[in-house]
Amino acid sequence: MRTASARVAIVTGGSRGIGRQAAERLVADGFAVVVNYAGNQIKADAAVATITEAGGRAIAICADVADETAVAALFDTTENAFGGVDVVVHAAGTMYLSPVAGLDLNAMDRMHRTNIRGTFVVNQQAARRLRGGGAIINFSSSVIGLALPGYAAYAAAKGAVEAMTLILARELRGRDITVNAVAPGPTATDLFLNGKDEETIAKMAAQPPLKRLGAPADIAEVVAFLAGPGHWVNGQVIRANGGIV
C-alpha cells in the first residue's frame, strides 16, 4: 500500500511557473520534492525555501534535461537524498514562435533539444528507475489542436511528447507505473505572457467558455491528480484548457 508521506517526486522546470506550482502542490500531498532547474539558482532556491518554511521537504538540483549524464546524476542525487523516486513531473520546456517561412532553424533546434530530446532523456531515466506505483507526467500543449499560426515548431515538439507518452505507457506494461501528459491551454505564466501585447492576451483569455486564462494552480491540480493514489488513468493526454476546442 503506497503512502503519500513516503513518496518522492522530481519536478523538472520546478523553479518557476507551472513546475513550481506543481512542486508546491505535491508537497501539500506529502511528497518530498526535488526542484530541478536549468540555470536560475536564485528562483530554485526561493522555491525550496517556500516549501521548507511551510514544513515540507525539498532540495534544488541543477541539470540540463537534454544531457543524459546530468539527468542520471539528478536521479542519483534524488535517490541518495530521499531513498528513491516515485513520480516525475517533466515540466521543463522552452518556446520559440515564428511562422514556418521565417523560422530560425537554429532556434528551432535549441527548442527541440529541450522539448523533444529532454523529454526522451528524462523519461528514459524514469522508466529505468521509478518504483512500482509511480507516475510519469509529461507536458504537451493544447496548441496542437488549436493549430495557431506561428506555433508550428513548438506544436511539432509537443506532438513528439504525446507520441512518447502513449508509447512509453505501453512499454511499461506490468510495472504499475502510469505515463500521462498534461496539455495546458493558454496559462498565465512568464513563458506564455512574454512578448504578447494586452490585446492578444485578452483575445486568448476570451477563448475558453470559462473566459479567462488558466492559472498555474489549475494545471497543478491535474498534476496532483495524476500523481495521486488513483492509478487508473494511463496513456492519456489531458487537455487542461478550460474547454477550448
Rank of each mutant, 00 (worst) to 15 (best):
P99M: 02
P99K: 00
I61P: 09
K158M: 10
N40E: 01
D197F: 08
R57F: 02
A163H: 07
G133Q: 02
V222H: 12
A92K: 14
E53T: 12
A152S: 14
A54P: 03
V237S: 14
A70H: 01
A205R: 01
A28P: 01
D45M: 00
L97H: 05
V161D: 00
G243C: 09
A92P: 13
M108S: 06
R129V: 02
V89H: 12
M108R: 06
L168W: 01
V121K: 05
R16I: 07
A6N: 10
K211M: 08
N80D: 03
A44L: 03
G39A: 12
A44G: 01
A147I: 08
V35K: 03
Q124T: 11
D104P: 00
A101D: 12
Y37L: 05
A22P: 15
A91K: 15
A224T: 11
H90S: 14
G134D: 04
A181W: 02
A227R: 14
A22S: 15
K158L: 08
F139R: 13
K43E: 09
G185C: 08
L213A: 08
N194T: 11
L193R: 08
E68V: 07
V35S: 08
K158Y: 07
H231Q: 04
S98K: 04
D104V: 00
S5I: 03
F139D: 02
I51P: 04
E221L: 11
I219Y: 00
R131P: 00
I61K: 04
A107F: 02
V122K: 12
P216W: 04
P229T: 04
A92E: 12
Q124A: 06
G84T: 00
D190S: 09
G83L: 14
A72Q: 02
A73K: 03
I167E: 03
S141H: 03
R57S: 14
L168H: 10
F139S: 09
A135V: 00
